[in-house]
């Protein structure tokens, strides 16, 4: 997944629930269709909830990669 061009990065590591989810939603709203959002996250609940909820909104989840101990990188393409 390294070849995907990331248009915006959102680092929500350490944030209180549900800030990662809300910030992701707000960031996607501001982006153009087709652009890719990278979310850096370390909170297990949101790591599972964000992909489920952005898919429901019609966005595409390109990847969920483990980048460290309890740290993940979620790539989302805006619809």
């Amino acid at each position: 997944m390294a070849d995907v061009k990331v248009d915006k990065t959102l680092d929500v590591r350490g944030e209180v629930c549900p800030v990662p989810d809300v910030e992701t939603k707000r960031a996607l709203k501001k982006m153009e269709s087709g652009q890719v959002l990278e979310v850096l996250i370390d909170y297990p609940l949101s790591k599972e909830r964000i992909p489920a909820n952005v898919k429901k909104e019609g966005h595409e989840v390109l990847a969920i990669e483990e980048i460290g101990n309890s740290e993940w990188r979620i790539l989302i393409r805006k619809k």
């Binding site: 590591r13 350490g14 944030e15 209180v16 297990p44 101990n69 309890s70």
Partner: peptide, 22 residues
């Protein structure tokens, strides 16, 4: 459980105001 599933990590918010809120 978090240790066993590699979900344990000391996490800190970047904005310390989060501490006031909690």
């Amino acid at each position: 459980s978090a240790l066993a599933t590699k979900e344990f990590k000391i996490r800190m918010p970047r904005n310390p105001m989060a501490y006031v809120q909690v």
